[in-house]
Amino acid sequence: MRAIILAAGQGTRLLPFTRQHPKCLVPVGGKAILDHQLEALAANGITDVLVIGGYRIDRLEQHLSHKPANQRPGLLLNPFWPVANSISSVWTARHQLHEPFCLLNGDTLFSADLIAAALDHAGDGINLLVERTEDFMLDDMLVAVEGERVRAVGKTLAEGVAAHRSMGFIIAKGIGPILYVEALDEVIGAEGGHGRFHHAIIDRLAWDSAVRAIEGDGSSALEIDRPEDIERWQAK
C-alpha cells in the first residue's frame, strides 16, 4: 500500500513555528510531525510514501535529503497551494491513486497502533477513520455516521447530524482507488471545485453509501493546529 501525505500548506495558526518551515516539519517532542508519521507508517509495513509539498518545499526537500535513500519518501510539488484548497494536493497526486493507498493530512500525529487497527478494519472500497466526540472544535471536519457507513462530511453540517469528526486518515482498497479518482474528477471539475477541502471527495462518495466509517481511539491521534496542541501531545 502506498501512503500519500498532504503537506502543502503553511499552517498560519501555528505561527511563528511555520514562518520558515512547512507545517509538517514543526517539531513535536523533538521530532518533526512528518517523521512521526513516517515511523508510524513504517511500523505497519508502509514504506512507499509520497509527500505532496508546497509552502517552503525547499525546506521539505532538504529535510528528506538527509534520510537514507531506501527510506526517503517521494516528493511532489503542488504548484496551486497558494490559490487552491487541499483538494489540489490530491489532484497533484492523482496519477498515484490507482493502486491501494492511504491518504493522511500532514499535520496529524497517529500512533502506530491506531494505524494498524485502521488497516485491519478497512474493507474493500473507501474507509474513513473517525472519532466519536461531543467536544467539537471550531475547525473540525464533521462526519455523520449511520451504522458503519459515512452519510455526510463537512465543516458545516446541521446541528445534531454529526456525532463524529474525521481523523484525517483515508484508506482505499479493492475498487476504492477507482471510486476515489472518479469522485475527485467530479468534485474538482465542478464550479469552485479547486476551493474545496479534499474531504469533499469523501462526502460525494457518501451519497452512494460508498464510504465505511472506522471508529478510532482519539487519544492515539492529534491534529497539530495551534501551538497549544504541541504541548497537549508532549503531555501525553
Rank of each mutant, 00 (worst) to 15 (best):
A8S: 14
T12K: 10
P16H: 09
F17S: 08
P22A: 06
C24E: 00
G30L: 09
K31M: 15
A32M: 11
D35I: 05
L41V: 08
I46N: 02
L50M: 15
V51Q: 05
Y55K: 01
R59C: 14
E61S: 14
H63Y: 14
H63K: 08
K67G: 03
A69F: 06
L76S: 13
P79M: 11
F80V: 10
W81L: 04
V90T: 04
H95P: 05
E99N: 05
C102L: 14
C102F: 00
L103E: 06
L104S: 05
S111E: 08
A112R: 07
A112G: 06
A116K: 09
E134M: 14
D135K: 12
V143F: 13
V143T: 13
A144D: 15
V145N: 02
G147R: 07
E148K: 13
V150Y: 09
R151N: 13
V153T: 01
A158W: 09
G174Q: 08
I175K: 14
L179D: 07
Y180H: 08
V181T: 15
V187S: 00
I188S: 03
G189Q: 02
G192E: 10
G193E: 04
H194I: 12
A200W: 05
I201G: 00
I202N: 02
A206V: 01
A210R: 15
I214V: 15
G216I: 00
G216F: 03
D217Q: 02
I224Q: 04
E228V: 14
D229F: 08
